[in-house]
Design a protein around this nucleic acid. Structure first.
Length: 472
DNA sequence: TCTGGGGTCCTAAAGCAA
DNA sequence: TCTGTTGCTTTAGGACCC
């Protein structure tokens, strides 16, 4: 999907169409998740600190991500992909590989083009958004093709043309080459893909180590036979928080670690998993990051056991000077079974405190008073008199709302007190209106979700000849 | 206003067992 | 009994991706 989060926001907010839109964390330490193409013109891009984005594009709209909505839309797109092939490998909410050969929907360039074009039309019809398609004989090449196709395009890399195409491209084009590896190669005088080939495999391994060296050399020769894998099991579950202000108080650090451990356990249990290795992550005031881990005798999903392990790990960390981020994770995962509940020493305490789910419910039921309600920028609201709209901004006891819906003309702005009883949070509206003929099963209908996470599909591999690429 | 959150994979060192 | 080799596991950190 093209500029996915920002595109969703533009589709749901008519007044933002054609405008610079930046989606990301709005706190003092937020970063950009996605910038619309209009915002990219100003130099704003993903992972940039929000402060820098605001300096570059002070007049852009700045919105908080709505993962529930994005996830609902993503699932609709993934459905379209799974109709093409059983082999669909999601990379994120907005990208996936599809093995078209395995789906028997494409066998040559012509048929692949047709499938790709139809898919783009279907994505548009179902979501109202544009997606780009890259078609090639391997995952690496399909990915590169889809990058070239963006925005709103389709690119095919024909077999036999790969080497010539890759040669002059930057090493940074290849998957796995980020800033560090890119620098490393540049210092060795290697900046293009063909220079990797010229350097030779031995030199690559010497520079980058075994796995990376062999892998990168193969990629430079356009050799990539990695299969499209439909279901990948999670290897770890983790949660982390960056704090608006560094935490200095050791007691508070301990409390935050316990909160994170509880959140992590909730996610773990929600996925029906337990794990053996507990990991504590600490980012200090100077951005130095360290992890400490402990492996238990067997997998557990007991909040007391995991909380205590996290607390022990924290004991071994010096936090003087302050802490900017804390995280708790669990790896060495196993399917949750009754046997995993062998409650170890802390079992009784866990029972006394009740299951974590109850903690979660208790939190969810804490209703803030009218005056305490939060109005995150970009979220939907409903006003008793003026109808559906979204939060344009808030502060100083006021909240500014623009009243418009995906199908309306750009709307008017009005300002209210944050405790105005006529104003309440609302669910997102569907981006595409259901046509009269369609049944009410929701398949082409609303994609709104009360809260959630996002995902959508973007890249497409046509591995019509997965393992038969030229060898030299 | 410097630098999110959720992951994956790789490497290297150290301890231990065969 | 001593020594060396090999391989597995645990731990910590780094790079990368979206």
């Amino acid at each position: 999907m093209d500029a996915f989060f920002a595109s969703v926001e533009q589709a749901s907010k008519p007044s933002l169409r054609g405008k610079a839109v930046v989606v990301g964390g709005l706190g003092p330490r937020g970063v950009v998740a996605t910038a619309s193409y209009e915002a990219r013109v100003f130099g704003v891009h993903s992972a940039m600190p929000m402060g820098q984005a605001r300096r570059l594009a002070p007049n852009a709209a700045y919105l908080v991500p709505r993962f529930g909505l994005y996830k609902a839309i993503s699932e609709r797109v993934m459905e379209l992909l799974r109709a093409l092939s059983p082999l669909v490998e999601p990379l994120s909410l907005d990208e996936a590989f599809v093995d078209l050969e395995a789906g028997q929907v494409a066998w040559d360039e012509q048929s692949a083009r047709l499938v790709g074009a139809q898919l783009r039309a279907d994505i548009r019809a179902v979501t109202g958004l544009t997606g780009s398609v890259g078609l090639a004989a391997s995952k690496m090449l399909a990915k590169i093709a889809s990058e070239q196709a963006k925005p709103d395009g389709l690119v095919v890399i024909e077999p036999g043309t790969e080497r010539a195409m890759l040669g002059p491209m930057s090493v940074r084009t290849l998957p796995g080459v980020g800033p560090a590896t890119g620098d490393h190669l540049r210092r060795a005088g290697i900046t293009t893909v063909e220079e990797i080939v010229e350097a030779g495999e031995d030199e690559l391994v010497r520079l980058l180590g075994k796995a990376h060296g062999h892998g990168l050399y193969a990629m430079a020769l356009a050799r990539d036979d990695r299969p499209v894998v439909a279901e990948r099991e999670a290897k770890s579950v983790s949660v982390e928080d960056t704090y608006d202000v560094d935490i200095h108080d050791r007691v508070r650090v301990g409390l935050e670690v316990q909160r994170l451990a509880d959140r992590c356990v909730r996610r773990l249990r929600g996925a029906g998993l337990s794990g053996r290795t507990i990991v504590l992550k600490v980012r200090r005031y100077d951005f130095s990051t360290l992890t400490r881990s402990e492996t238990l005798r067997g997998p557990t999903d007991d909040p007391a056991v995991i909380g205590e392990a996290a607390a022990r790990l924290l004991d071994s960390v010096d936090t003087t000077g302050g802490v900017r981020l804390l995280g708790v994770g669990v790896s060495g995962l196993a399917d949750y079974t009754q046997e995993d509940l062998f409650a170890q020493a802390a079992g009784e305490r866990a029972v006394a405190e009740g299951p974590v789910e109850e903690h979660a419910v208790a939190h969810a039921e804490e209703q803030p008073s009218l005056a305490e309600r939060r109005w995150p920028a970009g979220h939907d609201v409903r006003h008793a008199e003026f109808g559906h709209g979204w939060v344009q901004g808030s502060g100083l006891g006021r909240v500014t709302v623009r009243f418009e819906t995906p199908g309306s003309e750009p709307g008017r702005v009005r300002t209210f007190r944050v405790d105005d009883p006529a104003l309440e949070p609302a669910d997102p509206l569907p981006l595409v209106l259901r046509r009269p003929g369609e049944s009410g099963d929701g398949r082409a209908g609303p994609v709104g979700a009360p809260s959630g996470a996002a995902s959508s599909g973007d890249q497409v591999v046509c591995s019509s000849e997965p393992a038969s690429l030229p060898n030299s």
